[in-house]
């Protein structure tokens, strides 16, 4: 579990840095939605996150509709998706 936790913190830092957010990475509620009500991200941010993820973790995010909703459902979901898909 420790790997997952530290990856979550790493992804929080990545998101805050890539998007120049005005929050500290540890302030992001890992269960809150990234878009809309939670962090309030939008489609410009989604592209930025996709770019940052491809550079850092070596794989591409895709628009497979429902999948995509789940991936961006929360920081935790995004970190889990990265864990599963990152280049070894």
């Amino acid at each position: 579990m420790t790997t997952t936790l530290s990856l979550e913190a790493e992804v929080a830092r990545l998101v805050v840095e890539a998007l120049h957010l005005e929050v500290a990475p540890e302030e992001i509620d890992p269960e809150a939605p990234l878009f809309g009500e939670g962090l309030g991200l939008d489609s410009i941010d989604a592209l930025e996150i996709a770019l940052a993820v491809s550079k850092r973790y070596g794989f591409q995010l895709r628009s497979d509709d429902e999948m995509n909703h789940r991936i961006f459902a929360s920081l935790r979901a995004l970190a889990a998706h990265i864990e599963k898909n990152r280049a070894a």
């Binding site: 989604a46 996709a50 491809s54």
Partner: peptide, 8 residues
Amino acid sequence: GAVFYPSD
């Protein structure tokens, strides 16, 4: 189809 991300 849905086309948004670079890979799409």
